[in-house]
């Protein structure tokens, strides 16, 4: 598989040279790295020439007003945007040095390594157990005891085990919204991805569930690399190590969360986090 994923070094270095602003944070610690990355929907330029890196084991928050391209960028990392017709990308987006948009890239394998949690909880209309086991079973037959262990561990990590251990065979549709979202996280964790993308995971949830998810993110940080898109500035400040601010498709500012929220360099960033627009 690695042979097919091998990056064309030439292309890589070319882009690196051409990209106007070199990413200040680019370094060996970055698991996902974008440089000069652009996304078009037809003629609409949704993400403009973005260069940033997600550091391994850290939580990176992506903030910005609606329609600024932050979700689009996130969805590009596991190529979820392939589902959108007329979506084109230029520039480089790499996972551990491997071009995500390489023509011979194995999308299925990529998505196993880059998990995703969506805005609205989307459990399958199956039992809780089957939901978590779904991704594991795709890989082929597995012993029942082994599978049980994986399911239990994933649910424990998602802080859901205690609530559902007695009704693993109940339909997931009957759970509350917060539980459903944690189930989705457990489902993503079950296939042990390296990167976990979260697209506004709390926007459809009540404050109590939101708090639980935030705790969960804090627990998972370190073990997984997490990228979270959020509208909620406090949330970004609370859970993330790094913050990227997107505005009209551009990456306006990127840096450590503490610095961004206390001493932003850019005026637009300042205006946004102080709530003047957005």
């Amino acid at each position: 598989m690695n042979a097919t994923l091998e990056i064309e070094k030439k292309k890589h270095s070319n882009i690196m040279k051409e990209s106007p602003e070199a990413n200040p944070k680019s370094g060996p610690g970055n698991i996902v790295e974008a440089s000069g990355f652009s996304v078009y929907y037809g003629k609409f330029h949704a993400v403009k020439n973005v260069s940033l890196g997600l550091e391994r084991g850290k939580v990176t928050a992506i903030i910005g007003p609606s329609g600024c391209g932050k979700s689009t960028f996130l969805r590009c990392i596991n190529r979820m945007n392939d589902l959108v017709e007329g979506c084109k990308t230029t520039g480089l987006l790499a996972l551990e040095g491997i071009d995500i948009y390489h023509p011979r890239l194995d999308v299925v394998e990529l998505r196993r390594r880059v998990g995703m949690v969506f805005q609205r909880p989307n459990p399958f209309p199956k039992s809780i157990y089957d939901n978590v086991a779904y991704g594991v079973r795709l890989k082929g037959a597995i012993r029942k005891s082994e599978l049980d262990d994986i399911v239990e561990m994933s649910l424990r990590r998602a802080a859901l085990w205690d609530e559902v251990k007695d009704r693993l065979n109940a339909n997931a549709i009957g759970m509350s919204g917060g539980q459903q979202q944690r189930l989705c996280i457990a489902r993503a964790l079950a296939i042990s991805p390296e990167v976990l993308l979260m697209d506004e995971p709390c926007s459809a949830l009540d404050p109590k569930s939101t708090a639980r998810i935030e705790d969960l993110i804090a627990e998972l940080a370190g073990e997984y690399t997490i990228a979270i898109v959020t509208h909620n500035m406090q949330q970004a400040a609370r859970v993330s190590d790094f913050t990227a601010f997107f505005y009209e498709g551009n990456l306006v500012e990127f840096g450590e969360t503490k610095i961004i929220f206390t001493n932003p360099k850019n005026k637009a960033t300042n205006d946004y986090i102080t709530g003047r627009f957005g």
Partner: peptide, 27 residues
């Protein structure tokens, strides 16, 4: 069947065939 089911299945690393047969058709 909602778009979220499709995305959920694909994001877990299913092929399109698996997403269709294991998730969409049962839904």
């Amino acid at each position: 069947v909602g778009r979220d089911m499709r995305e959920g299945a694909l994001a877990l690393g299913s092929t399109r065939f698996e997403a269709i047969f294991k998730i969409l058709l049962p839904c």
